[in-house]
Design a protein around this nucleic acid. Sequence first.
DNA 1: AAAAAAT
Length: 465
Amino acid sequence: MTTQTIPPVRDLRFGELPVDARIAGALKAMGYTSPTPIQEEAIPSLRSGRDVIGLARTGSGKTAGFGIPIIEAIRTNERRVQALIQTPTRELASQVATMLNALGRQSGVRVVAVYGGVGMQAQINALRGNAHVVVGTPGRVFDHLTRGTLDLRQTRFVVLDEADRMLDVGFAPAIDKILGHVTGPRQTALFSATFPGEVESLAARHTKDPVRIAVDAPGAALETLEERFVRVVAGNDKTDTLHDILIHDECNLALVFRRTTHKADKLALDLERRGFKVATLHGRRSQAQREKALGALRAGHLKVLVATDIAARGLDITGLTHVVNFDLPDTAENYTHRIGRTARMGANGIAITLVAPEDEAELRDIQRKLPPAPGRETPAAEPRRGAIQRAVGRQSRNDDRPGQRQPRRNDGQAPRDRTRFSEQGNGWRRDARPSGPRAGSDHGSAASTGAPYYPFRSRSAGARG
DNA sequence: AAAAAAT
């Protein structure tokens, strides 16, 4: 008779949160020891059975915030797809599936990624096996539904990751069709770092009396991120400025955004000629090329990845020190998501936006829509002589970054922001009057307007009664 | 106007 090793009964808590022992084990193996604020809020809410709209900054742990309660609710003895997570890009679907797989490993939960650009048969086989959780992009998910190779009739959890993107015009019809196949009772969760007013009505269509978790104002700044703006004077080449950024000591790994696939390719070619290890990621490349590029970036084999907004949302790349907006993002939301590829989970990061004279007006539009924060440049700021050299050459504020990899904060605790927010107009405004003494900032004018204050972490039902 | 997402 074999002696079974019974694991000691400990680690049944994730910080203050009680968690399933197998999940506690998985979390420990993943290096997480206590929940981030969004996890502290989202996990109990999802456990309670309520729908959730969760807003929290980029890199603050949203994936585990829905992943943990879903994994622990999966009945592994039932061979049914019990949870569906939808993402806007294939790479994000893959990344989320990897994370959920790690969370569910010790629980016997089977997670299957379902997205286009790769063979159908392997996915069909995986789905025919014991798939408990499906993470996918809408096109391929719908394809499986019409072929009858995916059955969502027993699905009890639906998550729209990057929810504002999934509900916008490009995706909404596909999401509607897919959710039409989820015929049983279900819990719906929407998560994002941005949530523009326009998507509120769409969100209401897909959720019932949701718990609204606003750990951070949509678009809120990150304390560990330094946002810089480099004015490139007329006639000057942005590529030269980018070159200067890349060769600077503090730049380990950079993600550079361009607005079109063609421009991304062109810049990558230029950088290659200049001797940089570079790859491109955009939607006109084959899935094999895309995966190779992202894999090389994650493995640290590249200096720089040039991408379109395909890489703007969700991707978590360890060691990414710099995000460069070579071309301006098209919206304030995209600005927030792009720069949020760095400075994740308490790590430091630098985001540099290259600004040509013709970009100025558009940049001002973007900045006007962002919650102001100490350290975040405001539209009023005037470009000054010598600003380029200073911005490129300046050392990072908290320079504790070692050569290769950024340290993950191993206490699992993203820095907590005590700033309060006031709701004004259609958006959220950062109100710089903290609970303590006033920080040396000039962004606090809203504090004296008598606007109502809402608690920093608000938990109110969507519709006020 | 562009990018993404099914083929």
